[in-house]
């Protein structure tokens, strides 16, 4: 991808080398780390580098009120964490900060591993330097930087909720709409929608709860569907046409023919299926410019 050099990405402004705490550590330990490093929140990461939550000053105060500094971090952390991709733009980060009251977001790579942390101050500070507004007042004579009018990489995130069968498919539907609005060709929109929908249906049928994330650039659409489910023991077997462990009630709805994963593979240019510490992860890549 021809990256516009004027575009500032999260990976350019984030703090690498994350200070984290283990879920089994005590709240006291978390509090000490936060005090010595001067942080008001740190990510909770287990030995598999899986992000489980974030523990903040507010969580520590709750523990203090309960006189529970000996309790485990995992009992007091906030487990619904909103993450941002390292390749997101700072504009997207600003929107996240605006929409959520959190002061910091863990930064993840395409594999979902935590690679850094970004605070509101980091973004604003670096943005000021980047725009030159921390040095000198804007001079009307000065040449204005051209605004990037190109297709900006878009990040999109959608939760797939437990037992919400009627809403399943909303993630794929939103993705389809965004792609169409971005002017992506019909065939690519359709292939992306089918792959995303089948993946969403699988979370619903086989795992129940999960999340869909999409990274959209003109050269590549990456759809990541992660769930908190049992994962798959034998992935090559699950990829075979006709292999299914779906419950009868889903078969009666017209699913569970063992054709979902093969159809995702057919619709995608690349498909990676892997077990994570929490469940299953599908990484679906569709390349608009690839000539079939």
């Amino acid at each position: 991808m021809k990256k516009n050099k004027e575009q500032l990405l999260i990976k350019d402004v984030m703090n690498e080398g994350v200070v984290s705490v283990h879920p089994e550590a005590s709240v006291q330990e978390a509090k000490d780390i936060m005090r010595s490093r001067g942080f008001s929140g740190i990510p909770v990461i287990d030995k598999d580098n899986c992000l489980l939550g974030i523990i903040s000053v507010a969580d520590i105060i709750r523990a203090l009120e309960n006189d529970a500094l000996e309790a485990l971090v995992k009992e007091y952390m906030t487990s619904r964490v909103i993450t941002i991709n390292a390749n997101a733009s700072v504009g997207q980060a600003l929107r996240l900060f605006h929409n959520h009251k959190f002061g910091r977001f863990p930064v993840v790579n395409n594999e979902g591993e935590v690679v850094g942390i970004v605070t509101h101050g980091d973004v604003i500070g670096r943005l000021a330097v980047f725009l030159g507004i921390d040095e000198e007042p804007l001079d009307e004579e000065k040449e204005q930087e051209p605004i990037n009018k190109e297709f900006i990489p878009q990040i999109f995130e959608y939760p797939i909720r437990a037992l919400d069968f009627d809403r399943t498919g909303e993630g794929a539907s939103s993705l389809k709409k965004i792609l169409a609005e971005l002017g992506v060709s019909r065939d690519i929109v359709r292939r992306s929608a089918i792959a995303a929908y089948e993946a969403e249906i699988n979370v619903m049928i086989h795992a129940r709860e999960g999340k869909m994330t999409a990274n959209i650039s003109p050269q590549e659409i990456t759809i990541i569907v992660e769930d908190q489910g049992p994962g798959i023991d034998n992935i090559p077997l699950a990829m075979r046409k006709g292999y299914s462990t779906a419950a009868d009630k889903f078969r009666q709805m017209g699913f569970g023919a063992g054709m979902g994963l093969p159809n995702i593979k057919k619709s995608a240019d690349k498909l990676f299926v892997e077990n994570t510490c929490k469940g299953l992860r599908l990484i679906i890549k569709i390349m608009p410019e690839k000539i079939a």
Binding site: G169, S173, R186
Partner: peptide, 12 residues
């Protein structure tokens, strides 16, 4: 059921 409509949507 609603997924019939969603299927139709995905496939145009």
């Amino acid at each position: 059921h609603p997924q019939v409509i969603r299927t139709a949507e995905m496939l145009d």
